[in-house]
């Protein structure tokens, strides 16, 4: 198989593009696709500071790598979920990545904010682990961005993630979720920062290949709580479709954005008010994060009181007083 650019030996075939690339040309193609997506969807400019939510996995580290190489002002945020050795290993990957590149990384422990680590939240409240994890990530990435003066949070969600989420929403005909799913969520309230997904057109296999070819030491092992996750079943189904019809995943998601999402968006009218506890926008009297933190406290697990940690240059006293983002909540 030959590279479509230089005719040298290919290392990666992309059937949906009817193309194959050598390592050098694939890396250039990947970077170009990312930058074009950022520009076309007006995600952010090179003049805006961007907070990149990093997990130590292939997608988020590949995103941070591309942004730094392309001259964006990108700072990492690692949320320590407290998931035993998995969190230790993933945090070490993020710290090593930042150190090698001289990039800034903020580290915030969920236990310091919620009163318990993610596995402890499950024990104390019975709330499913992935649900508590997702809620904490949405809330804390937004809050830290606001407090640190970042107008935008970028995440490493890729085409497979988006297609799987869409499939789940369609299977349940969930209009709120369908209205919300977008590569760009604008800051629709002063308490929200913009959220963007620069990899939404790029497949999971491409981000893995990019990370491998760039020599990025990412955590290959999966979160121990992801075993049996429904999203993995959706991804398998979508990969079966992709095997039969290359381009099926991209068509599913991009035609949703073009043809269906606008209709759901018109239906979605949410009234926001300030959370009575933390002041952040919410649809309820108390936001979902504060409600969960209260349940943790009632169950005897409160370990808060430790300020948000930043390993870069944050003054912890500046990190207080701002709160929740629960736009993905009922």
């Amino acid at each position: 198989m030959k590279c479509i650019k230089c005719r040298g030996p290919a290392v990666l075939e992309l059937r949906r593009h009817n193309a194959a690339f050598c390592a050098e040309d694939f890396l250039a193609f990947f970077r170009k696709q990312t930058v074009e997506t950022i520009r076309k969807w007006k995600m952010f400019t090179r003049e805006e500071p961007v907070l990149v939510a990093v997990s130590g996995g292939k997608d988020s580290l590949a995103l941070w790598d591309v942004l730094l190489l392309e001259g964006y002002d990108a700072t990492g945020l690692y949320l320590d979920l407290g998931i035993y050795d998995y969190s230790k290993a993933s945090r070490a990957r993020c710290e090593a990545f930042a150190a090698e590149r001289g990039a800034k990384l903020h580290v915030v422990a969920v236990a310091d904010e919620m009163g318990a680590s993610i596995p402890e939240v499950k024990e104390l409240t019975r709330r499913p682990t992935c649900s508590a994890c997702g809620l904490s990530k949405r809330y804390l990435t937004n809050r830290v961005a606001l407090e640190q003066g970042f107008p935008v949070v970028a995440t490493g969600h890729n085409l497979d993630d988006e297609a799987a989420t869409l499939l789940g929403s369609v299977l349940h005909w969930a209009p709120e979720a369908l209205a919300r799913q977008s590569p760009v969520l604008p800051a629709s309230h002063p308490g929200f920062v913009r959220r963007v997904k620069p990899f939404f057109r790029i497949s999971e296999r491409e981000t893995a290949a990019y990370a491998f070819l760039r020599g990025i030491d990412y955590i290959v092992e999966e979160c121990p709580f992801s075993r049996g996750a429904t999203s993995l079943v959706y991804k398998e189904v979508l990969n079966r479709l992709e095997e039969h019809s290359p381009g099926a995943k991209a068509a599913f998601f991009t035609t949703f954005l073009q043809r269906a999402r606008p209709a759901f968006e018109r239906l979605e009218e949410v009234e926001l008010r300030d959370c009575a506890r933390c002041g952040q926008p919410t649809t309820a009297e108390v936001c979902a994060f504060c409600r969960l933190a209260e349940r943790v406290k009632r169950a005897g697990g409160d370990r808060t009181g430790t300020p948000v940690r930043s390993e870069a240059e944050t003054d912890p006293s500046e990190l207080r007083g701002l709160g929740a983002a629960e736009r993905a909540l009922p």
């Binding site: 996995g57 292939k58 499913p128 682990t129 992935c130 497979d160 296999r205 398998e236 990969n239």
Partner: peptide, 23 residues
């Protein structure tokens, strides 16, 4: 790539790229 041949004496790694929980 899919058309390349792996020899009998060689070692290869098959690395999954699918990740994620309930998101």
């Amino acid at each position: 790539t899919s058309d390349q041949v792996v020899g009998e004496e060689e070692t290869i790694e098959v690395r999954p790229v699918v990740s994620g929980g309930a998101r």
